[in-house]
Design a binder for these strands. Structure first.
Length: 460
RNA sequence: GGCCGGAUGGCAGAGUGGUGAUGCAGAGGACUGCAAAUCCUCGUACGUCGGUUCAAUUCCGGCUCCGGCCUCCA
């Protein structure tokens, strides 16, 4: 296969050529654990999980690393304000994060390193940067010297002059250059801190990703992903740290960034009241529907999150599951399945074009619905199911999908009993009673489908 | 102010220098006791103004509008 990815570094779509075809390595910036993940946090997780699934299908070994930032001033602030310990907050939040991302069918990364467990590696990296003349200590801080790096700004395509001209923040007096950024900063006694050659302190934001990606993926690796908002300064500074420490040409080969997420046409923010956590959303929609909504827009485009979009994703899943359920059982010819899956793979291989992949799945589902040939149905069913596996959807049985729904209302047994009563009425041609029962179920949010295999029902 | 994206039919959303993806919604029909699901038919969209071209939604430029980033700092 030929995978093409849009590389932010070159601003062009490039053919993906792994450094080691026997072992593909990718790093994605993970959460700072101080609060529930919101839907904007979920987008890169779902996007890069989909890439991970595609890579795993193509290459014999893939290592996916995603960090957990558990030392950060936002965490300190949360601890001070709540009176709880930092450890309590980070452990609880990391557990929530796992629950929520699991519910979106995001596979766990192979490595999930925590910043606080890699302080030693960070100190070593900072020391190396000082030794090579790329960093300096000043007033308890260690700063990266932007002037020491000729091509600083290559990823975000900013010149240092532009950055200085555009700076709107007062420059700290200990910086030699306004563009210099913090690698290490001093901690007060009440702040978390570690002993270092520069005194007790804590790491700056960017250094952990350089230290941990280097440890788990090597000095050079294939893909580095994250949200577009991380291009500058975070990823720019990671590049500066890693390439200055390890040499030119090292670090990530392909930089992939997902677009921003908006809600109902507006920027998501707490003050606008359009701030949704994944946890809240899971209470009103299945995880797969949330996931499919996130994949319904190409990852590079801005995504406008709407209730209508979520409803449409759920309807698409209804259609896919319904096609799978009506397909029946049968053994599929593997080569034929591969051929049917081709359009889906081709879409994903073209810079992860998930909307086109979903359209290809609709084509498969449509042909599956109208096929009268059992062997063909088995092929199409298998292809649809495998396509779902690549996108991280269609992971449950059609029956559990259609029976899942909002909590409350009649239970499965009660619904089954009402359906049986209605069918008895139909057999007796008492259609008034049959329709009364169906209406009662409809009022409870249950839809009936009479078919050759009997009556099926669905919630929602 | 600097830099970077984006503008496609009622909605969502791909894509392409020349046969109007795909889904949802809507209209008609088949099927059904009635429905639901499914199937069939139906939509002449590409912000604006110019340019290049035999031909532009697709390439180039101006304009308008929308969104984001501008260094650890809220």
């Amino acid at each position: 296969m030929t995978l093409a990815v849009y590389n932010t570094m070159s601003r062009a779509k490039e053919t993906f050529v792994p450094l080691d075809p026997g072992h593909v390595r990718m790093y994605v910036c993970g959460p700072t654990v101080y609060d529930r993940a919101h839907i904007g946090n979920a987008r890169p997780v779902v996007v890069f999980d989909t890439l991970y699934r595609l890579l795993k299908r193509t290459y014999p070994r893939v290592t996916y690393a995603r960090n957990i930032t558990d030392v950060d001033d936002k965490i300190n602030a949360r601890a001070a304000q709540s009176g709880r310990s930092i450890r309590d907050i980070t452990e609880e939040t990391a557990a929530w994060y796992h629950q929520d991302m699991d519910a979106l069918n995001a596979l766990r990364p192979d490595v999930e390193p925590r910043a606080t467990e890699h302080i030693g590696e960070m100190i070593a990296l900072i020391s190396a940067l000082i030794d090579k003349g790329h960093a300096y200590a000043a007033e308890g801080h260690v700063l990266f010297s932007v002037a020491s790096m000729a091509d600083y700004g290559a990823l975000s395509r900013r010149s240092r002059d532009e950055m200085i001209a555009g700076a709107r923040v007062e420059v700290a007096p200990y910086k030699k250059d306004p563009g210099d950024f913090v690698l290490w900063k001093p901690s007060t006694p009440d702040q978390p801190g570690w002993d270092s050659p520069w005194g007790r302190g804590r790491p700056g934001w960017h250094i952990e990703c350089s230290a941990m990606s280097g440890k788990y993926l090597g000095e050079s690796f294939d893909v580095h992903g994250g949200g577009q908002d991380l291009v500058f300064p975070h990823h720019e500074n990671e590049i500066a740290q890693s390439t200055c420490a390890h040499g030119p040409g090292t670090f990530a080969r392909y930089w992939m960034h997902n677009g921003y997420l908006m809600v109902e046409g507006e920027k998501m923010s707490k003050s606008l009241g359009n701030f949704f956590t994944v946890h809240d959303l899971l209470a009103k929609a299945p995880g797969e529907a949330i996931r499919l909504t996130l994949l319904s827009t190409h990852y590079h485009q801005p995504l406008n999150w709407t209730d209508d979009g979520l409803t449409q994703a759920k309807q698409a899943l209804d259609r896919f599951y319904s096609a799978l359920e009506r397909a029946g059982e049968g053994t599929a010819d593997a080569a034929a399945v591969e051929a049917e899956l081709r359009p889906v793979l081709a879409a994903l291989e073209d810079d992860l074009n998930t909307p086109a992949a979903i359209a290809a799945m609709h084509d498969i589902a449509g042909r599956l619905n109208k096929s009268a040939d059992a062997a063909e149905r088995a092929v199409l069913k298998s292809a649809l199911s495998q396509a779902g596996g690549l996108l991280g959807i269609l992971a449950q049985t059609p029956e559990s999908w259609r029976r899942a729904g909002a909590a409350g209302g009649p239970g499965d047994a009660e619904i089954d009993a009402m359906v049986a009563a209605r069918n008895a009425a139909r057999a007796a041609r008492d259609f008034a009673e049959a329709d009364r029962l169906r209406q009662a179920l409809a009022d409870a949010g249950v839809t009936l489908e009479d078919g050759p295999a009997g009556t099926r029902w669905r919630r929602g």
